[in-house]
């Protein structure tokens, strides 16, 4: 197991390296510069800017300097657009916010989704099943950019219960709308996957054996059916968790949460090379990490898988 984990971590390094180089090159191929603005800039000022941010160096040198700073000093450089901020600052400020509402959304999505899915499967073809399937399909087809304004309309403008945006670590009222908006579509997918895989497991031989032994239904479901039924859910959860905690631009834009999702998209639009690279590396690392976690959990749940 340890050897397996180490091996996986070792392969992560070339993967990340390839990610960095490919992103860096793609970014530079894209037309437009971080410094172009509506007002034409005199060439001498542009030259000063390029010199300040090292863009006057040959590309290979830029990449190696960048990598050296990241590896040796954990320094992702200054933002090209937010002149008073470094990339480390931007991530340090935005990531905790995203991590908070992302984790809460993840927990909500898993709890509600699995419950809905299991209920639907056990009470197959009953009104409960139809309700659960109905709810999850409804949640699936409502993308969060539609959800967000509807939630604000209902909870802020009509009921006056919750603030329509903003963020505070100390006041949970600010968390609720972003979490609902972000978690619903994941919740729906989890419910659907759980339901179908639960149905499959319930029809399998070992469950029939358990029933034949006369085990109570509750024990069959929780002891014998749930664990194997969750395998496909878990493989979905890895990437889902990463995409939730790395933020959603929609949530950040609608609710002005100040999370990292908006920084990521804005940095691409602003050609803020440094921020874009920083967030890409963060995302890449998290993706690799959570794929590994998923594989480990797999081995733990499924006795057929051994490393």
């Amino acid at each position: 197991m340890i050897v397996y984990i180490l091996k996986r971590l070792a392969t992560a390094i070339p993967t990340l390296l390839a990610l960095v180089i490919a992103s860096y090159l793609l970014m530079h191929i894209a037309p437009g510069s971080p410094f172009s603005s509506e007002r034409g800039i005199p060439p001498e000022v542009l030259a000063n800017l390029n010199a300040k941010y090292g863009l006057d160096q040959p590309l290979w040198k830029q990449i190696t300097t960048y990598l050296w700073n990241v590896v040796a000093h954990f320094d992702f450089g200054p933002s090209f657009v937010y002149k008073d901020r470094s990339v480390n600052d931007i991530i340090a400020q935005g990531f905790p916010v995203t991590l908070t509402y992302g984790s809460l959304s993840f927990i909500t999505a898993v709890l509600v989704g699995v419950t809905l899915g299991v209920t639907a499967a056990i009470k197959r073809n009953s009104w409960l099943d139809y309700l659960a399937v109905g709810v999850s399909i409804g949640a699936q087809v409502l993308p969060n950019f539609v959800m967000a304004p509807i939630l604000v309309l209902v909870f802020t403008l009509t009921l006056h219960w919750l603030p329509g945006g903003g963020w505070s670590f100390s006041d949970p009222r600010f968390w609720i709308l972003p979490v609902i908006a972000l978690s619903t579509s994941y919740m729906a997918s989890i419910a659907r996957i759980t339901r179908s895989s639960m149905l499959e497991v319930l029809g399998s031989n070992h469950i029939r054996t358990a029933r034949a032994k006369g085990l109570p239904n509750r024990k069959i479901i929780f002891r014998h059916a749930l664990k194997p039924a969750l395998l496909p859910v878990i493989s979905y959860l890895g990437p889902a968790f990463v995409s939730m905690i790395t933020g959603s631009v929609i949530i950040d834009v609608y609710f002005t949460t100040g999370g990292i999702g908006k920084s990521f998209v804005d940095s691409a639009l602003n050609r803020d090379y440094a921020v874009m690279m920083g967030v890409t590396i963060l995302l890449g690392t998290l993706t690799i990490l959570f794929n590994l976690v998923v594989d480990i959990v797999y081995g733990w749940i499924d006795p057929k898988i051994r490393y």
Binding site: P42, V45, N48
Partner: peptide
């Protein structure tokens, strides 16, 4: 030039 301000103009 060291400040490299876009508003130097």
């Amino acid at each position: 030039p060291k400040t490299a301000s876009e508003y130097a103009w």
